[in-house]
């Protein structure tokens, strides 16, 4: 006698094997006739089928991400001077089990968290390419969910198709001195995107949509927990600052980034169209994340201007060949004070 639970488990396994073409022809026939007379079983089959995904394609993306050069180098050195010699002479006997494992480089990534960087860049890209998606970043076992999906990729795509329209509107609203660097030089801020799009629908780049928009979208996904994932030890922070400084070619150190009423939490490199963006992250007194972002800019100096994007206050300016922005969910006047301090530091 099989209990109902056990029975349904067996059924599930059988149904999945059916879906996967793993049943013998006899089993298949038997199940097919059982399905005919059993609507509940058919329903279950449909459910299990809907639990399928394009797994192979998804996993193949990971294959593309594999660090092949590094793996090949590791293997070459194993063969060259690994425990087993390259000669065809039989290895005496298996070494004691415990010695068989290659020494583990258990050290965490040096001084920074490269994966965080990757993840950040990936999320930035996500944010840019529209549609929310659930993004989980795991820190020491915790997952920080920073966005929630409106599901269904087709919908997402659709929403994406005219992505320029709303952004253009925003763009048009922005004060005239604010527009995006690349565009401004060539064309007036209003019309160009349409033209560009007509010519080459796919060439609309994030950079053309504006780095502030990109950053704002990204930072709007931040929570205090996101910042909790930044390394806390001073050495790591210092290394982060050095990395950031060399990436954008601007001296950045702890003194320079310390801003009034903000708790410095770490740095992060973002990339937009290959252009590095330094992000210096803080926690404000109200528990909200604030970021100072810096990127190279070919634009002439521009005075500070305020705007709002994605529900966040922003103060931005251009000085000395760099575009700056401070952004966060803090009152506008407070952000003004913060930005004044930042301007003083970086002028």
């Amino acid at each position: 006698m099989i209990g109902p639970t056990e029975n349904s488990e067996i059924n599930d396994a059988r149904l999945v094997a059916f879906l996967d073409g793993e049943l013998s022809s006899a089993e298949r026939t038997a199940l097919a006739s059982a399905l005919e007379g059993d609507p509940e079983l058919r329903e279950r089959l449909d459910l299990l089928e809907s639990g399928g995904r394009p797994f192979k394609q998804a996993f193949d993306v990971l294959l593309e991400a594999a660090p092949d050069d590094r793996l090949q180098a590791m293997f070459a050195s194993l063969v060259r001077d690994g425990a087993a010699s390259a000669s065809p002479v039989p290895v005496p006997q298996a070494l004691p089990e415990t010695d068989n494992v290659a020494p583990l480089r258990r050290s965490p990534p040096p001084a920074s968290l490269p994966l965080w960087q990757y993840a950040a860049a990936a999320i930035l890209a996500l944010a840019l390419f529209g549609g929310g998606i659930a993004v989980g970043l795991r820190w020491g076992g915790e997952t920080t969910i920073i966005a929630q999906p409106p599901q269904a990729p087709p919908e997402t795509q659709q929403a994406q198709t005219p992505p320029q329209a709303p952004q253009e509107t925003q763009q048009a609203q922005t004060p005239p001195q604010a527009p995006q660097e690349t565009q401004q030089a060539q064309t007036p801020p209003q019309a160009p995107q349409e033209t560009q799009q007509a010519q080459a629908p796919q060439t609309q780049t994030p950079a053309q949509r504006g780095w502030r928009e990109a950053v704002a979208q990204y930072v709007s996904l931040f929570s205090a927990e996101t910042l909790a994932g930044f390394p806390a030890d001073p050495a790591a922070r210092e290394a982060g600052l050095r990395r950031v400084a060399s990436a954008i070619g601007l001296p950045v150190n702890e003194d320079r980034v310390s801003l009034p009423a903000l708790d410095f939490r770490g740095t992060q490199m973002l990339q937009l169209e290959g252009k590095p963006i330094a992000q210096i992250a803080y926690l404000a007194g109200n528990g909200k994340p604030v970021a100072l972002c810096i990127t190279r800019s070919a634009n002439p100096p521009q005075p500070a201007a305020a705007e709002q994007r994605h529900g966040l206050n922003i103060v931005h300016w251009v000085a000395g060949g760099y575009g700056f922005m401070v952004i966060g969910d803090v009152p506008g006047d407070e952000l003004q004070r913060i930005s004044e301090a930042a301007r003083a530091r970086f002028t």
Binding site: P54, A58, V61, E64, I123, A125, L126, T156
Partner: peptide
């Protein structure tokens, strides 16, 4: 990771989004 970084065009990105 690494994943979305690889992609440049929006089309690829869509694929990657879905894979993600």
């Amino acid at each position: 990771p690494e994943i979305a970084l690889v992609a440049d065009g929006a089309r690829e990105m869509d694929t990657n989004l879905f894979a993600r």
